[in-house]
Simulated scan of single mutants.
Amino acid sequence: MRSTLFIVSLIASTGAWAQADLAGAPDLAKASGCYSCHANGEKVVGPAFAAIADKYATEKDAAASLAQSIQNGSKGKWGRIPMPGHASLSQGDLKTLSTWVLTVKP
């Protein structure tokens, strides 16, 4: 019984940690310069985060694919203006940003 409660508690706290981890994502996006070219609901230089979330909504490995685009940059996915890569971001930050972008609603 005790081990079952521990496992349930561990699963619940892991879910809360993941949610809390994304709470700082908008600040990470600002600090990383994402908001220089993107906004949540409207196109700036690059597409709105909500448009990105919509485009990737049905993709199986959307977060991993998006993290790769953030890290390496992309060209031609959203028009003629290329997105520069952010190679200095850690794998954790890339995962946080890509996961968060996929949650942005208009």
Score class of each variant (00 low, 15 high):
88 S>Q: 14
18 A>T: 08
40 N>G: 05
86 H>R: 12
38 H>M: 13
67 A>T: 00
7 I>G: 07
31 A>I: 05
15 G>L: 15
35 Y>N: 02
46 G>W: 03
71 Q>R: 14
46 G>C: 09
76 G>R: 06
72 N>Y: 07
80 R>P: 08
97 L>I: 10
46 G>D: 06
47 P>N: 10
99 T>L: 05
40 N>K: 08
80 R>W: 09
97 L>P: 03
106 P>K: 15
67 A>R: 00
91 Q>A: 15
86 H>M: 14
8 V>C: 11
20 A>G: 01
8 V>W: 02
50 A>P: 02
97 L>R: 05
99 T>M: 03
71 Q>Y: 03
83 M>V: 07
28 L>V: 11
42 E>F: 04
50 A>M: 09
73 G>E: 10
48 A>H: 09
3 S>T: 13
51 A>P: 03
26 P>V: 01
39 A>T: 09
17 W>D: 06
4 T>S: 01
71 Q>D: 07
61 D>C: 00
21 D>Y: 10
11 I>E: 03
60 K>A: 14
72 N>H: 11
58 T>G: 14
97 L>F: 09
84 P>V: 08
90 S>N: 08
75 K>S: 14
95 K>R: 08
85 G>T: 07
103 T>M: 05
70 I>M: 02
1 M>S: 13
67 A>K: 02
24 G>P: 02
30 K>M: 12
70 I>H: 02
2 R>S: 09
9 S>F: 10
74 S>G: 06
24 G>Y: 01
48 A>Q: 10
55 K>S: 12
16 A>I: 15
39 A>F: 01
42 E>I: 07
6 F>A: 14
87 A>P: 15
92 G>L: 10
23 A>D: 09
45 V>P: 01
81 I>T: 11
80 R>C: 00
16 A>Y: 13
99 T>D: 13
40 N>A: 12
60 K>C: 02
76 G>I: 05
63 A>S: 14
34 C>H: 09
81 I>E: 04
13 S>A: 15
31 A>H: 08
69 S>C: 05
50 A>Y: 04
37 C>G: 10
35 Y>C: 01
25 A>D: 03
25 A>F: 01
10 L>T: 15
9 S>L: 15
38 H>F: 13
3 S>K: 12
37 C>Q: 08
40 N>W: 00
105 K>C: 00
101 V>Y: 02
25 A>L: 07
56 Y>Q: 03
104 V>G: 02
39 A>M: 12
89 L>K: 02
96 T>D: 05
26 P>D: 04
24 G>T: 14
96 T>N: 09
85 G>C: 06
1 M>Y: 07
57 A>N: 13
37 C>A: 11
96 T>H: 03
105 K>E: 10
91 Q>L: 10
11 I>C: 14
89 L>D: 06
6 F>S: 09
71 Q>K: 14
93 D>T: 03
44 V>A: 10
96 T>I: 12
92 G>R: 13
49 F>V: 02
43 K>E: 06
19 Q>H: 12
69 S>R: 07
67 A>W: 01
25 A>E: 03
9 S>C: 13
29 A>Q: 00
